[in-house]
């Protein structure tokens, strides 16, 4: 039996046809997305975060549409298939409150269900490797480009700070999050925030949220980043250990990898262009670090007052 027939048998959906094979289908209830899962444990984790983070939130993640018998997915050959809602229109970053509520709920669930209960869950804990950066930057250091030497120096200092923060909260649980958190995944349906999740193995820690904040900053302003953090804080407190863990992740100079990747000394022209991109990448991350640390400082001052 082909996939379309199987879906029609298993789900309360009619008139199914391909829109974009093999991921998007048209049905009598609109466009739906198909996700393919090779690993059942990964599917289970994705069901859980979607279900849990939707509770009480005005935002809706793309939960698994249930089959006729109430299952979250169907087995098809050697893989599992789940069906989700699908939308195209971007939600944008104007409605900070809604994003804040959604991310707050998401983080709450990500810390609560940190994968402990599921020993088979593969989670990666990204660790920053300064030595690898130093090796990569070696050949450029000799040329004494000021942006590189300054950034490497700053990266070392930030890493020290990050490690110092982490050592204070080393016993705290890290959240388990989707590998890719992007504001582009936020779509608009009926004016509410519909978040289209992914299907990769999750990662442990705040790196996905750091990437999200950087992307947010690129599309808005430092003030908007601060507003977003304030809204998140209403639903998931960043006042204590979790705030420090986030700060440690923000301060960690992850961007140095990306900066170094921009460099290409195969020709002078490419080298100049690479250095320009290096500076841009470094500066935007620097703004993020400055904005987030400022937000934490402002919050501390308010508490002190």
């Amino acid at each position: 039996m082909n996939l379309i027939n199987t879906l029609e048998n298993e789900y309360e959906l009619y008139g199914i046809r391909w829109k974009e094979k093999p991921h998007i289908i048209m049905t009598d209830l609109g466009e739906k997305r198909i996700r393919y899962w090779k690993d059942y444990e990964r599917l289970k984790w994705h069901v859980k975060w979607r279900d849990e983070s939707s509770k009480g939130s005005g935002a809706v993640p793309d939960r698994m549409i249930r089959t006729n018998s109430g299952e979250t997915a169907i087995q098809y050959g050697e893989q599992w298939i789940s069906i989700h809602d699908h939308a195209e229109a971007l939600f944008g970053c104007d409605e900070v409150e809604r994003w804040g509520q959604f991310i707050g709920n998401l983080l709450k669930c990500a810390v609560k269900y940190d994968g402990k209960e599921n020993l088979d869950l593969q989670t990666e804990l990204p660790v920053f490797d300064i030595n690898q950066c130093l090796r990569l930057s070696q050949k450029y250091m000799e040329a004494n480009f000021s942006c590189i030497t300054t950034s490497i120096y700053e990266a070392k200092e930030r890493l020290k700070l990050s490690e110092a923060i982490r050592s204070k909260v080393k016993d705290s649980e890290l959240p388990v999050l989707e590998r890719e958190m992007s504001f582009k995944n936020g779509k608009k349906i009926f004016h509410f925030l519909f978040y289209q999740g992914g299907d990769a193995w999750p990662v442990r820690g705040y790196l996905p949220f750091r990437m999200f904040l950087l992307e947010w900053l690129e599309h808005s302003s430092p003030l908007s980043v601060k507003q977003l953090l304030t809204e998140v804080n209403k639903h998931f407190t960043l006042d204590h250990e979790q705030g420090l863990l986030l700060l440690a992740e923000i301060v960690t100079p992850w961007e140095i990898y990306d900066c170094l990747k921009q460099l290409d000394n195969s020709s002078l022209e490419r080298m100049v262009e690479g250095l320009k991109k290096y500076e841009e990448c470094w500066e935007s991350n620097r703004t993020l670090v400055k904005t987030v640390t400022e937000w934490f400082d402002e919050k501390r001052r308010k508490v002190a007052l």
Binding site: I189, F190, F192
Partner: peptide
């Protein structure tokens, strides 16, 4: 009104 109830009715595909 439709927009207010949209997030609820979305759960039913209505």
């Amino acid at each position: 009104e439709t927009l207010n109830y949209g997030p609820v009715l979305f759960h039913y595909d209505l």
